[in-house]
Structure formats: structure tokens, C-alpha cells
Design a protein around this nucleic acid. Structure first.
Lengths: 204, 204
DNA sequence: GAGTATACGAACATCGGTGTACGTATGTTC
DNA sequence: GAACATACGTACACCGATGTTCGTATACTC
């Protein structure tokens, strides 16, 4: 009988377990944050015990770092790349905002990143450093887009590109999460905020 | 000898201790959040031991609730009231944003509130409820301002006032904190974001 | 100034959570 | 199918942090 509990190969079994645990850990992190995240709860939520979790991940820190990496890659594919595929810098920045709002609707990924960032900023911790790395790269890239748009003339002059980019990203994150269950106004309000930061006129 | 360690009356002594502990707890919360906040660290930072803390506050939860109340009242006086003193609703909303940016520069209060809100949203916890209470009132008030401004015509139509207010407050909080060490661009970028959300033209 | 209340420190009991050691069951290789 | 490797569960040791108890010093009352 080809029951659902049938997992033939070990690689399959391993992959399925890791995915379940990563997903449960992501949900847990978005609700409880790192410090209050109990691996017992994560394991239960994934349908296993802590033994399985510790078999797949060396420790709590490694598990969460894996979640961060996983979320980061997912977001890259779903939001960043499609937005960058647009030709114009301004169009890219707005597309990224709208794409992010849609991403927040269906994935706890953004909540995970925000929660961890709030928890670890100002600390000296591997997870904090991993987040800084990811956000730093993104900030640099967005600053580049802003600079390009300003040279082209589609984006008016304003505060330093780096700070404008930091503001842009912070707003993306917080507003996307705040309004994640308020479609369709999430997209509308996020675009309004972003246009304001960039200094371009409101949509008509 | 009138040394600095001289505290005559008991009420004075008590008040001084409570203030020191509250202030240390606020700094600690903004850095570590609730779960990772060790009362040993707070007491040390305030110049006492845990014994003093537990003498003044029943437990960790009560201490943090006191911090929340204290921050809330401080913010009210420094930011909300002066802004509401302005006649026009739109002017009030912008004044509140600018005032908040200044508040973030000098006080960890906003960081405390953000950290706690991220940590407790989605939980059923007294601290979470206290925050909901405070933010709910503020949101209602801001929604009222937006409605008023729209009736007057200084604020153009847009998404529901309640959601617009929620977005406004989220942005206030996150941007204020993100740029707290980036004067003078903090005020500039925060005003840009807020104007965008409200749908009013960028400042010239 | 003797007695009482308040402020604070020190030591202890307790608990939730992490990480580890070990046992069992399910695949894999020859 | 026998020997081995991998997946997972169970039980235990350990640690940090909370909250409580009790002792001591400082302020108030009469």
C-alpha cells in the first residue's frame, strides 16, 4: 500500500523531515522569537520529537540560521529577482514593494526576519551577524537603484541614498507585516509610503 | 557631610531607586527584549542587586508593565500633546512624526515599545494586552485626525482611515528607530514617508 | 533611644529549556 | 541476510533565571 507514511529512500525521509522542521521553526519564530522558541514545541508542531530536530540540526542556533538562509533565498526568488528584472530603477523599487506585500500575505518569512532583527540588533551574536550581512547587501543594492534613478531623473534628489535605502527597507518590512491580512490595502499603502520616501508624486 | 550617597527621607530613597531601576530596565529591554532580559543585569546596571528590584516590583512582569506605562506617559507629554495642540489635523500628524523623530534621538522609549510589541503580538500575555490598549487608543485618535483632514480637504481620499492610521504609526515607530542616529535625515525621511502614506504632495 | 517599618543584600529552592547519551527501528550495501 | 549506517525517541545531566526567605542596615514614630 502506498500510504502517505511510506518514505522509501533515506534522502527523501531526511529532506521531508528537515523541511517540516524548518517550516515549523519559521512559524514558531514569527510568533515567539528566538529566546522564547522551545524546540520541544517546534518538534511537536512538525510531528516529531526533539530527537529528530537534534539529529538534523546541530543545535538551536544552527537550526535558526538555516531558517534565515531558507527565508532569504525564498524571498530572493519571489520578490527581489522579479523586481530587478524591470528595466527602470524606480519601477524596480516599486515592484519590489508590491511584490513584498504579496509575499507577506502568504509567508511568515518576513515576520521571522523582523522578529530576529529586532531581537539581535545591538547584540554580538552569529544570528545578528547573518542578518546584518543579508540586510547590508540588500541595502547596498537598493541604494544603487536610488542613485541610478536620481541620475536618470525619475527619482528626485533627497537624503543620502544609503539612508533612503535603509528607510525604504524598514518601511517595506514593517508595513508589509502590519497589513498582511488587509488586502488589497496593503499594496496600496506600501506603495504610497515608498513613493513618499523616494519623493515621487503620489499615484493619481 | 552632604555626600551624594546621602538620601534623607525614605520616600526619596524609594523614588530614586525606582527611577534608577525603571531606567535600567528600559535600556535593557531596548537591547535584549523581555525574554532575554535578566533582572540581575538590570539591578547591576542600576547600581543595586536583585533584592532591591524585587522589593520595589512584585515580579518581572510588573516591572516591565511599569516601564511601559512610564514610557507611554513620557511620549504623550513630549510628542502627542504638543502635536495635537496644532490646529489642523494634517499639521498635527506631521508634527507628531517630526516630534517622534526627535524623541527617538534621546530616549530608548520607542525601542522598548517596538521590541515588546514584536515579542508579544500574537501571544495572550498581560504585556501584550497593555500594548494593544495603548496602540489601539492612539490608532483611533490618528484615524480621527485623518478623517477630519479628509473632510476638510487638506488630506486626499485613500484607504480606510483606520488602516491608514495603523500604517502611519508603524512607519513612525520603525523609521524613527532605524534613523535615530542619523540626524538630520531622520526627520526629513520620516516626514517624506508620512506624507506619502497620507497622499499629500512631497515638500518642495 | 527603644521599638517598628522600610530598603536592600545574600543564599536557597525550583523550573523550563538545552544539549547529550543511549536505545530502537528502518533503510542500505555487499 | 548479515553487517553497517541513518532516522528518530527516551531519559538524564546541566545551566541560567526567577521568585522566595531570611538577615541586616537605615529611616521613622513615640
Amino acid at each position: 500500500m502506498s500510504d502517505s507514511t511510506e518514505r522509501r529512500t533515506q534522502a527523501d525521509r531526511r529532506a521531508k523531515t528537515r523541511e517540516s522542521v524548518l517550516s515549523a521553526a519559521a512559524r514558531g519564530l514569527s510568533k515567539f522569537g528566538y529566546a522564547s522558541l522551545a524546540l520541544e514545541h517546534v518538534a511537536r508542531d512538525a510531528g516529531y520529537t526533539r530527537g529528530a530536530v537534534y539529529h538534523q540540526f546541530a543545535n538551536k542556533e544552527v537550526l535558526v540560521l538555516s531558517v534565515v538562509e531558507w527565508v532569504s533565498e525564498t524571498w530572493d526568488e519571489a520578490v527581489r529577482r522579479p523586481a530587478l528584472a524591470e528595466g527602470d530603477p524606480l519601477v524596480s523599487l516599486i515592484a519590489m514593494a508590491r511584490g513584498h506585500a504579496h509575499y507577506c500575505r502568504r509567508s511568515p518569512g518576513a515576520s521571522v526576519m523582523l522578529t530576529l532583527r529586532v531581537e539581535f540588533t545591538g547584540q554580538d551574536h552569529p544570528i545578528g551577524r547573518a542578518l546584518e550581512e543579508i540586510y547590508g547587501r540588500l541595502e547596498t543594492e537598493c541604494a544603487g537603484l536610488i542613485d541610478a534613478g536620481r541620475r536618470t531623473g525619475t527619482i528626485p534628489a533627497g537624503p543620502p541614498a544609503r539612508l533612503t535605502a535603509a528607510t525604504y527597507l524598514t518601511v517595506l518590512e514593517s508595513v508589509g507585516i502590519e497589513l498582511q491580512h488587509e488586502a488589497p490595502h496593503d499594496v496600496e499603502l506600501l506603495e504610497r509610503a515608498v513613493r513618499g520616501i523616494l519623493g515621487v508624486a503620489p499615484v493619481p
